[in-house]
Design a protein around this nucleic acid. Sequence first.
DNA 1: CCTCATTCCTGCGGGC
DNA 2: TGCCCGCAGGAATGAG
Length: 279
Amino acid sequence: MPELPEVETVRAGLEQWVVGRTIKAVEVNHPRSIRRHVAGARDFAQLLKGRTITAARRRGKFLWLPLDSSDAIVGHLGMSGQMLVQPRTAPDEKHLHIRFDFTDRGPQLRFVDQRTFGGLAVSIGGAELPEEIAHIAKDPLEESFVDKEFVESLRRKRTGVKRALLDQTLISGVGNIYADEALWRARIHGNRPSDELSRQAAQRLLGEVKAVLREAIEAGGTSFDALYVNVNGESGYFERGLNAYGREGLPCHRCGTPIKRSTFMNRSSFYCPRCQKER
DNA sequence: CCTCATTCCTGCGGGC
DNA sequence: TGCCCGCAGGAATGAG
């Protein structure tokens, strides 16, 4: 499940493998994967033909590839999207939806996506910051992210702390896994009302969010199955670093109490009932 | 404006 | 052995 660390790993791979290359042709096999490109597949391909990719950037879980036209390819991996760099001779993947061929006749870039929650679009004039992602907040690893602003807006919200962490307009890049991990580290229950958190607790939580995201990037991301891989098809190994997510019934690494699982927002939450009191 | 439930999608694993 | 159901969940959407 790609969250910020997994998307960052993919971004780094794109920087290495596709920046500086010129697109020769684009093939769209599944219209749903470009549903956010309203003008359709033909327009998508036409805008990209002959363009050179000049960088690989990311904000939160969104990626974008600025082009020499000042447009950009903007993308989100959703639940199962993959950006793979593959030799032209490699057999098509089962869920290969978009293929990029380059003028250098080198490896292709392939967008593969089993559940089709992800997708790509051309953002007109979006090289600097695509308007498609301007509505989401900065992610906590951006230099211009302001801790105090996050702390204050978190405390202004009238909702649960975990729900707030998952709100991409408040802080971007955090998904279900790293939200649970940061809450475990900060010893805060995800159902705690966000407006009842002290400034100190909110700042501590933010510190743990940043720490866990950085550590996960270092490990190349978290992989539970073949769905999350880097551009070369390799898995990350941060799963070993998880303290809460997916550990129902297993002893808390701090106090030994079995980790609990509960469901809300249509998703699972894992927490230590002893370290993380609801109130 | 704010909060929250619903919807999209496919593969997998449990239960019968 | 096969079928059905629940589950995985990021983000857009619309209801209230």
